[in-house]
């Protein structure tokens, strides 16, 4: 929730008197409740007072409503500060409530916000000429025609940066504007072609039991090939980090005596035997030979 505060003293009007029209409205509202329960009309009266004061509630208006209803001012203040629909600071002649909730954002409210920031500036700031101010609010319930804004009492939907700029230009210039959809959509009907409820199969009886049938079909294992693909995506053999680690593997790579014996050959080749007998290449120390070696 945006930080809200009372308008500073210099913005507050000197006085506020309920107009005859507001008074009449107030009396009508108060009459709806049993005698002594006139405080129930507080929201209606505050709304009307806000309307009279130009879209926001000056302090004096809150006091006037309290006096009208015979309530302590703090009780009216509690209501006025609780509901974000009561503006406690001045707003522009056109007060734009911009919807920033998920569906609108998915449909491009971000661009609309950029337009607002570019043309009007920060939230809660009235333009120098007093025409515009804006505020980001939560869902206003026109998601089907997102993105949308509420300007004073009307909704403007299906906005694009272009048509929104134009809308603001028109408002600023005082030209008439269309409320509702800005792309010619009729209320919340589909935009391009009206297809809803026009499929002939809806009316020939073929849809009876179709949903159940489809459900039962889908309940079987689908032959999408996905399980196979999933299986194929697995590595053929589980690979250990080091292939031979901890495993006795047999390999053909080496020519070993064991292999030769297995294959029926002489385990030790004649030349190897001769090489091994060569004392000059021996690693073992033969004391006698050593002496010889040293002496020679």
């Amino acid at each position: 929730m945006a930080v809200r505060k009372l308008a500073p003293e210099d913005m507050q009007p000197e006085s506020f008197v309920l107009s005859p029209e507001t008074e009449a409205f107030a009396d009508k509202e108060i009459a709806k409740y049993p005698p002594g329960r006139q405080a129930s009309a507080v929201i209606a009266l505050l709304t009307k007072a806000q309307e009279q004061a130009g879209g926001w509630l000056p302090r004096k208006a809150i006091e006037a409503v309290a006096a009208k209803l015979g309530m302590p001012v703090i009780r009216v203040m509690e209501v006025a500060t609780f509901y974000t629909m009561f503006n406690l600071e001045p707003v522009g002649k056109y007060f734009i409530q911009f919807c920033g909730t998920t569906p609108c954002v998915l449909r491009g409210a971000g661009d609309i916000k950029k337009v607002l920031e570019k043309r009007i500036g920060e939230q809660n700031h009235v333009t120098a000429d007093g025409t515009f101010s804006w505020l980001e609010v939560e869902c206003l319930g026109a998601c089907c025609n997102a993105p949308m804004v509420q300007i004073n009492d009307d909704y403007y939907e299906d906005l694009t940066p272009e048509n929104f700029e134009k809308l603001l230009d028109d408002l600023a210039a005082g030209r008439p504007v269309t409320t509702g959809s800005q792309i010619g959509r009729n209320r919340s009907e589909p935009h391009e072609a009206v297809n809803t409820l026009q499929d002939p199969s809806l009316y020939d009886g073929s849809q009876i039991g179709a949903w159940r049938k489809r459900f039962e079909e889908q309940a079987q294992p689908a032959s999408t090939g996905e399980p196979a693909a999933a299986a194929a995506s697995l590595p053929q053999q589980a690979k250990a980090a080091k292939p031979e680690a901890g495993r006795a593997t047999e390999s053909d790579a080496a020519d070993t005596p064991a292999k030769r014996a297995k294959e029926g050959e002489a385990p030790i080749k004649a030349e190897e035997r001769k090489e091994a007998a060569d004392a000059s290449k021996a690693t073992a120390v033969d004391p006698a030979a050593g002496k010889d070696n040293k002496s020679s």
Binding site: M1, R4, V73, M77, E78, T81, F82
Partner: peptide, 17 residues
């Protein structure tokens, strides 16, 4: 009735008018 709770939720504050 001087005291009241203004604003709401986390921002609620106890104050006099």
């Amino acid at each position: 009735p001087d005291l009241g709770a203004i604003w709401r939720g986390e921002d609620m504050e106890i104050t006099s008018y």
